[in-house]
C-alpha cells in the first residue's frame, strides 16, 4: 500500500484486480480545503483510462514492477514488436495502448519497458527526443514575420510546428509529451 500523495507518473497500481499505470498526476488544493491528488490512470492492456481524485492520505494498492531493456523492432499497424535485449525473446504490445508512440519511437532503439507478472505494462520514452526533419516546406521568400512557424514531419512521422528557419535534414529537439519543438540541434 502507498499513500495517494506518493503516487507519481509511472506508478503501477492495482484497481479492482486490474493493473493501471498513472499517466498524469496533479496535486489540487480546493480553495481553503484539504490536499487532494488528481490522477489519470491507464490500463495498458485495454487502453481504458480512469480519472480518480483522492485525498493525499488515502491508501492505494501499488504493485511491484520490473523495468527491462527492449529493442523496438517495428509495428504492424496493430502491435508494437519489441525484443528483450537480455534474452532475445520477442514481445508484442497493442498500439492502441500508446496511440502516439508510433510517431515517437525509432526502429532499432532500446527503450525501458515496465513488466508486471511477465506482462508489459508501460513503455518509457524519454521526455525529450532528437528527431531528423524528413519533410519540411520551403520558407516562403519575404516571410520575415518574427515568430513565423511552419509544420515539418520527422523521420518517425511526427508532425511538429517549428520556426520557419528549420530545413529538411536538420535535427530538432522535441518534447515528447506536448509534441512541441524545443530547439535546433547543431551536431
Amino acid at each position: 500500500m502507498i499513500k495517494a500523495g506518493q503516487i507519481d507518473k509511472g506508478t503501477a497500481l492495482l484497481i479492482k484486480g486490474q493493473p493501471f499505470i498513472c499517466v498524469e498526476r496533479e496535486f489540487v488544493n480546493p480553495g481553503k480545503g484539504s490536499a487532494f491528488v488528481r490522477l489519470k490512470l491507464k490500463s495498458p492492456s485495454t487502453g481504458q483510462t480512469l480519472r480518480e481524485t483522492m485525498k493525499t492520505q488515502d491508501n492505494a494498492e501499488d504493485i511491484t514492477v520490473e523495468d527491462r531493456d527492449c529493442q523496438y523492432l517495428y509495428n504492424d499497424g496493430e502491435m508494437f514488436h519489441f525484443m528483450l535485449t537480455e534474452t532475445f525473446e520477442q514481445i508484442e504490445i497493442p498500439m492502441t495502448s500508446f496511440p502516439d508512440y508510433q510517431y515517437i519511437m525509432k526502429d532499432g532503439e532500446t527503450y525501458r519497458v515496465t513488466f508486471w507478472e511477465h506482462s508489459p505494462l508501460d513503455i518509457q520514452v524519454p521526455a525529450k527526443v532528437i528527431f531528423t526533419v524528413a519533410e519540411a516546406e520551403e520558407a516562403i521568400k519575404g516571410d520575415t514575420v518574427t515568430g513565423a512557424t511552419k509544420m515539418v514531419t520527422t523521420e518517425t512521422g511526427l508532425t511538429v510546428r517549428v520556426p520557419i528557419f528549420i530545413k529538411q535534414g536538420e535535427k530538432i529537439l522535441v518534447n515528447t509529451e506536448t509534441k512541441e519543438y524545443l530547439e535546433r540541434v547543431n551536431k
Partner: peptide, 9 residues
C-alpha cells in the same frame, strides 16, 4: 470538509 471536497472534486 474533506468528504465534501472528495465528492465535489
Amino acid at each position: 470538509e474533506a468528504t465534501f471536497n472528495r465528492l465535489f472534486l
